[in-house]
Design a protein around this nucleic acid. Structure first.
Lengths: 209, 209
DNA sequence: TTGTTATACCGCAAAATGGGGGATATGATC
DNA sequence: GATCATATCCCCCATTTTGCGGTATAACAA
């Protein structure tokens, strides 16, 4: 049937693989094409399988990790939606997977409804995420409301972080070069640092900007 | 009842206000405290109301916008969870709201289940988002797989964007200063620019890094 | 009244930058 | 086997930037 979404699964745990397979097969909207236990195998068959959605485990026994695999897929077949399924919710791993091009990130569960809802979310243009992941992703945006920097100083520091020089900042903010230098001196003194890189590092780690 | 979450609504459309009020009142888990049509009024009563969740419209008739209001709340009462409810899904507005400290972002709907599910998501530590918003947020992470830069060059450019000097980059990557200069020269030539700021600007706008 | 913010100026020595040149070694790709 | 991309390293040089030391004014808030 043409309206069905073609789904491929990459997961090296046999039990989980069978479980997901059953869940997907039971829904009309999705057409379960194949399951592989490594990216290598999946990629060898990708032209034949023509998946629209790939469910990808992140820790795989093969040479290619789920993150590397995601990068490869988005490079060669950008229209394919990759959803990560994993037990790991380490923040760096999550953000790496998203940077690699994943369209969703689910922490493993045998819950039937959760998986099907996630596929539905994806199909209607969403980005399925488990609750904890969603919070991590949102928190990534939050800036610290207790920044010691004034609004103007934040403006200046943001431009510093974009690689602008004092003179460029002056031009962009319609102030003199000396004023941008003064702002930067004040920023350094507030943050107790004495170079651009330290200021950027501290401000980013504490989310002052 | 102590287990109930205290909810305050800030919304200046009377019809929507009544609608949300009814929805929230109908669920045992949530205690509808009050509805206001401006941040000013809500803030005047915040110590009395002691809300744990604030549902906030983004375009308000008062002087304080929903985004300003969110900033204020997260500054003075960081434990309060703010969820934005709005008709607008302009990407800059969404990201501004999230940077301001919002824990969720819902595009308005009179759908009962959607609202209650969202509050439940929030309560269990998630970040409720409408499908389209979730995708916008995730897309914000995606890096361009067609970057002309090599992995090493990306490493170098990322450090440039952190304000590091050639010598600092050399130390961090365990290469000589001359090598970092060579990488940067190659980056400039690939991106057709000739300064740090141009390289950062172009690379960020095209998501090369 | 004191403090913060935003603006502006001067001088100076050290550091960084951007451009020019050239070099070697390792892979992959053709 | 030739070519290309990548990653590493070196030299020179003029110009700009940076960081630090000052000082100063005007607005506004606590």
């Amino acid at each position: 049937m043409e309206f069905q979404k073609r789904v491929v699964l990459i997961e090296d745990d046999r039990e989980l693989r069978d479980c997901y397979k059953l869940m997907i097969k039971s829904v009309d909207k999705y057409l379960f094409i194949n399951a592989y236990d490594s990216c290598e195998e999946a990629f060898a068959n990708i032209s034949k399988d023509r998946p629209e959605i790939i469910l990808m485990d992140i820790q795989l026994s093969g040479k290619i990790s789920g993150i590397e695999g995601t990068k490869y897929i988005k490079l060669k077949h950008p229209h394919i939606e990759v959803v990560i399924i994993t037990v790991y919710d380490d923040s760096e791993l999550v953000f790496e997977a998203l940077r690699a091009g994943a369209s969703g990130y689910l922490t493993k569960s045998y819950n039937y409804l959760e998986l099907v809802n996630s596929l539905d979310e994806l199909t209607k243009g969403g980005a399925p995420m488990s609750a904890k992941i969603a919070r991590m992703v949102i928190n990534n945006f939050h800036s610290n409301p207790n920044s010691p920097l004034s609004e103007r100083e934040k403006d200046v520091l943001k431009l510093i972080a974009e690689g602008k020089s004092y003179s460029q900042i002056a031009d962009l903010l319609f102030i003199s070069k000396e004023t941008s230098k003064t702002h930067i001196k004040n920023i350094y003194s507030k943050l107790q640092v004495n170079s651009k890189s330290e200021a950027i590092e501290l401000a980013k780690s504490k989310r002052y900007i």
